[in-house]
Design a protein around this nucleic acid. Sequence first.
RNA 1: AGCGGGGUAGGGCAGCCUGGAGUGCCCGUCGGGCUCAUAACCCGAAGGUCGGUGGUUCAAAUCCACUCCCCGCUACCA
Length: 560
Amino acid sequence: MIVLSDIKLGNKILVTSALPYVNNVPHLGNLIGSVLSADAFARFMRINGKEVLFVLGTDEHGTTTEVRAMEEGLTPKELVDKYFVIHKNIYDWFETSYDCLGRTSSEANAKITIDIFNDLYKNGFIIENTITQLYSEKSKKFLSDRFVEGECPFCHALGARGDQCDSCGKLLEPNELINPVSKIDGTKPILKETKHLYIDLPKIEPDLMKWYNTTKSKWSNVAVGITEHWLKQGLKERCITRDLEWGIKVPLEGWDNKVFYSWFDAPIGYIGITIESIGDEWKNWWMNQDVTLYQFMGKDNVPFHAIMFPAFLIGTKKDYKLVNYLASTDYLNYEDKKFSKSKNIGVFGNDAKETGICADVWRYYLFRVRPETGDTQFVWDDFGSKVNNELVGNFGNFINRVVSLDEKFFELKKPKGSKKELIESVKPLIEEYKNLFTEARIRDALIKANEISALGNKYLQDKQPWITIKTDEALAAATIAECIDFSKLLAVIYYPFVPKGSEKIWQMLGEKENIVNVGINGAFSGVREETKLTKVGILFEKLEQKSIEEFKQKFSGERK
RNA sequence: AGCGGGGUAGGGCAGCCUGGAGUGCCCGUCGGGCUCAUAACCCGAAGGUCGGUGGUUCAAAUCCACUCCCCGCUACCA
């Protein structure tokens, strides 16, 4: 079936990955949902001839950071500095090709957040409310958010947090809880008056709806589902300030003991990080309607990107770029369980490196089971079988066959006579591959790449150059030449998934020009005749059953 | 209870939004081919009343209604 895409792309593609919360090590589920997906997508758009800006960073404000810092005996600043390095190392190890990497706690982000706030304020979308809030007399501070636990007023589940009941998913205000208890000191908090700022979402809603209705058709199913669930319930004013110290100070007189709620400055962080990285150029991306904006995230992040962030920007009445394609994923579970830091279940970003399995292989499997249409599982046996059969057996082996044949019969020189019939025949599949990527269906695009690669193996099998070499050398030469050209195309289409492997092939083919500059279109031109190939060894190692068993044990959480 | 995900060949999945012959992917089983290749590659076969009932339709795995099961979460976690 031909996959059609109705997405019209401009020449500039802006890509964001949800900003991982800084005070924890991200696990494979976090990575595939946001960072890696955004990376494969950004890489694809580059080889597709687009100008790309890929924005990545860390979300550093909020209550959790304060609590965590307290636990580790650090200041919030020290804590986020420490974890930022950990995050950066993980992204780098996974070959993340970000153009901008930054932090929501930067100066630049504080400035743009305040700018946006001032616009909202000026346009009458900010409301001041005095509310009675829970206050701990023992700790002498207001208890916002997750500092308080109690019974949910809607579903009456116990252990609901102050900002949200995980039981029924409803968003709460902390003072709505029944029988609240302070999580800091265990005391029963008292009610005390405090004032807060709210964003008037109902007032913005009409414009938001207008925009949403023109955009949603391009979003992932889960994103549309979640967004409409929210809209159906009707938007309410939403508090955007907190009684905390760690955060961006509210720029109004008499408000200097309040900071913005981290969910206010976190999405704005995409812009802040861009400014932090490329300065004034940021306007070419975030205030340019010719840009196409793709945002990648896990499904839990959808409301903030589909409703909150667009509402903030619409409320400024300025020409900010709103998301075109909201690419959200479901969850990747671990061997039928959930990833859990405290139970030590699952593979976390820093563990991946220590397995000795290379980043490409991790990337391959994660993209292969990317949760595009429902939750999926990371299963070690499946990891082994998909890597060994698909990545190694199909793609890696094809490349290896070609080099070996060429070495054996033509001393590693590319022979003459490629008819480009294989590469031509595959053009419709390449179009499908491109369309899938354009719709952010990364897993399906990878499956399509595998399909294309398998045709290479079939071609070799059908043409049997190792036999025809004995009777018709020109024919064998043409076959191998054809396969060398095909390798070039494969290197390009696999580049979003396994960049290191692709670059190895590139080196093998003696290509001088950068793989991104050549791109998909350029790859059809093939390899110059007489080119001397360079042997680069095996592209991807197989996973041994024995090590799979070991890893299964090691990450099951049962060992200690 | 609430929220979320799911029930498609022996196992694991995609296909469902946008209805058009059960179409496909990985493993497994059986048979064959090939021997260039990382015990890899290629071809073929067996194996499915697409959880159930009812409806809409010329046509339903796909849309609608009802129903039966399974799983996850509700303690940091996406």
